[in-house]
Structures are given as structure tokens and as C-alpha cells.
């Protein structure tokens, strides 16, 4: 069963990555990032059971905490940007370049 879980995790991760690369709405990009994090968590939990060790679950727990903090700050940034530029597109924020 471990293999199945891990492949599911990898698929979700890849889907999230493709979403990050193709979507332009910053919020959706953020959701895709969350999806990737969740995929990782699934792998952690799977391995925890595979090796009979609770530490994988602990790590997954910490990932959730960090993800929560990240979402809070990230969404605040998106709101701030939207407030000044009237846009939530990641492509519009491209002044930092050559």
C-alpha cells in the first residue's frame, strides 16, 4: 500500500506544481502551493506508518503550522498588492528584473 500512497502523493505534488506554473491568479497559485504541501504531508504520514515511527506525523504537523503562518502572511501580501495595483495577477508584479 505504501507505494500507492506515495504515487498519489507524487501525482498531487506534480499537479500542484503545474498549477503554480500555469495559473496567474496569485490566490490560485497559493492554493496550488498548499496542494503541494499537502502532498508532502501525505508522504510523511505514509512513511511514518511504513517505518513504524511517529516522527513523520510530527513533521507533518509542523508543516501544517508553517503552512498556516505562510498563508496568513502571503494572503496579506496579496491583499496589499491588490489594494495598490487593482490586480491579483502574478505576472503584473514583474518590476524586479534586468
Amino acid at each position: 500500500m505504501t507505494t500507492h500512497y506515495l504515487i498519489l502523493s507524487g501525482l498531487l505534488f506534480a499537479i500542484g506544481a503545474i498549477g503554480v506554473l500555469t495559473r496567474r491568479n496569485a490566490i490560485v497559485v497559493f492554493m496550488c502551493v498548499e496542494l503541494m504541501l499537502n502532498a508532502c504531508n501525505l508522504a510523511f504520514v505514509t512513511f511514518a506508518r511504513q517505518v513504524g515511527n511517529l516522527e513523520g506525523q510530527i513533521i507533518a504537523f509542523f508543516v501544517m503550522v508553517v503552512a498556516a503562518a505562510e498563508v496568513v502572511v502571503g494572503l496579506a501580501i496579496i491583499v496589499t498588492i491588490f489594494r495598490t495595483r487593482r490586480s491579483a495577477s502574478v505576472d503584473d508584479v514583474n518590476l524586479l528584473k534586468y
Partner: peptide
């Protein structure tokens, strides 16, 4: 090479992936 710095976060993300 400078032109690679497009300013588009998605391009950077692509290179990371």
C-alpha cells in the same frame, strides 16, 4: 544572460522545477 531575469515569478518557478 540578463534577459533570463524576466521578472516573472512563474518563469523562475519553472526553472526551479
Amino acid at each position: 544572460l540578463r534577459r533570463l531575469q524576466t521578472g516573472f515569478a512563474r518563469t523562475y518557478a519553472l526553472s526551479i522545477l
